[in-house]
């Protein structure tokens, strides 16, 4: 980042005041297992022993405040519950505009994950669209959600709103 140098005879009107925070984040036990499975092309969830809801990725249940037990295999197919279309360029942008970023409830999960939806015109994105993970080849997978290139339409009929209205 560099500021264009003001001319030596012009008054100063602006200054750079960046805020930069550098962290080392730990994925913790559950997300480490989750990301390990992602490399293998699998998605793991966790079921709350109290409210029975399945969270992806697994985590302590935010409602009940209890630890989740077991790693539950989750489908890599799901339904778009909500979405946004990104049409405005921004710093650090890597996708070609416009693109669709969606909240996707995977089959077997109670809460959505967030990912790109591709293989569809942005104007055709909609709630209820059935999608599946488009995995990168095994050699290219890393412990990150980018191991799924995007979610793409399955071609199935749209899901009825009542089937996912509790999972927005």
């Amino acid at each position: 980042m560099s500021e264009p140098k003001p001319k030596q005879d012009e008054p100063i009107k602006r200054m750079l005041a960046p805020v930069r925070l550098e962290f080392t984040v730990s994925a913790g036990r559950d997300k480490t297992a989750f990301l390990g499975a992602i490399i293998e092309g699998r998605i793991l969830g966790g079921r709350c022993p109290s409210c029975r809801k399945v969270y992806v990725p697994p985590r302590g249940c935010p409602t009940c405040g209890v630890e989740m037990v077991g790693d539950i295999p989750i489908s890599d197919h799901g339904v778009v519950t909500t979405f946004c279309t990104v049409s405005i360029p921004f710093e650090g942008q890597t996708m070609k505009l416009p693109y669709v970023y969606a909240s996707i409830v995977l089959d077997g999960a109670d809460v959505p994950i967030f990912h790109l939806v591709d293989g569809i015109d942005a104007k055709d994105a909609r709630m209820g669209l059935r999608v599946r993970a488009d995995w990168r080849p095994p050699a290219e997978r890393k412990p990150t959600m980018e191991s799924i290139r995007a979610f793409v339409p399955t071609g199935e009929p749209d899901a009825a709103f009542d089937t996912y209205k509790e999972h927005l």
Partner: peptide, 23 residues
């Protein structure tokens, strides 16, 4: 061992300083 990764949060503010601080 849990996975770790670097994470940087940065806001690249350029702020107007106003007439007095500007001087």
């Amino acid at each position: 061992m849990a996975l770790t990764a670097p994470y940087v949060l940065e806001y690249t503010y350029r702020r107007s300083v106003g007439p007095v601080v500007g001087q």
